[in-house]
Amino acid sequence: MSVTASAVVKTFGGFTALDGVSLAAREGEFLALLGPSGSGKTTLLRILAGLEFPDSGSISIGGIDMSDRPARDRQVGFVFQQYALFRHMTVADNIGFGLTVRPRATRPPRAEIDRRVAELLELVQLPALGGRYPAQLSGGQRQRVALARALAVEPRLLLLDEPFGALDAKVRKDLRRWLRGVHDRTGLTSIFVTHDQEEALDLADRVVVMVHGWIEQIDTPELVWERPATAFVCDFLGGANRVKAQAVAGQIDVAGVRLPNRAPAMVDGPASAFIRPHEFALAAPGSAGIAVVLRRILRTGAQAALETETGDGGLIEVTIATPPDGLAPGTALVLVPQTVRAYPAG
């Protein structure tokens, strides 16, 4: 089912969580809402679910206007950040809950519910745990039960609120891969919220980058990475270094080095240039580029991570594939940017 949000505004007290946000998810798409805390991504997700209502704007699912419908009528599956499993019910009862509360007319017979539950336990790879209680499960297992429970009611849309936030790194990676697999198998339109850019870029068909209640960019992961539309997106993704530069005659001048602008074209004038750590080449002092002094060097296998300091105390991080010999803390260097994305300064 496709999902659209149009001009959604939501304020809490004096705080504007969403400032007229619009987005459209295609059928079967796996969408990530990415942004820092306070960006409004969770609010938007909850509005899509019907757990909050916007001050203005509309929501439609599958072409039908849902703005007035409460959560229980939207047929949306929601996976909560802390899973929200029913502590006093077994895993099987948790998963079957949505089916057992249906009105008698549409409620499947007990045998059918049990069958669905068993099917879902297989899908989430927890076939033997139906009789356990949530307290007896690990975080990753609870996560999967929460997902199975949401899928049991055959939702038209799946919403996940920071699904891996409470798990440790290794479990997170495994589950990430597994979730994508489940999505591909079910073909369900899914939207998930995360503040972890790696996760968003790894999993999503398209990424929605949000900050301060506003959408900065909606694009595929590749485009969001290669061609960030605004300074914020560039800064948020990729750990770029920010340096002062000048836009001159359609090009960007960074400490004497002229490069085309990888970001949207800008008018001439002062600019903030972003250069990612791997987008530098090293040169001897005196060349065109940014003059720095090497502070730390960490050789890790195939690469070296350099921490350098500019004349006015700024820190620039560089990663070099094959560092030249003789690099030691205190060495003077020049960093020559190879790629630059610049945006109007200020």
């Binding site: 019907g50 409460p70 959560a71 929601f78 802390q82």
Partner: peptide, 22 residues
């Protein structure tokens, strides 16, 4: 937590069902 009640709501439970069963 409110999230358990919200979960029940998204799963289709009425307020009464949520109270009695959750």
């Amino acid at each position: 937590g409110a999230d358990v009640e919200e979960a029940a709501a998204t799963l289709g439970a009425s307020r009464r069902q949520t109270f009695v069963r959750v």
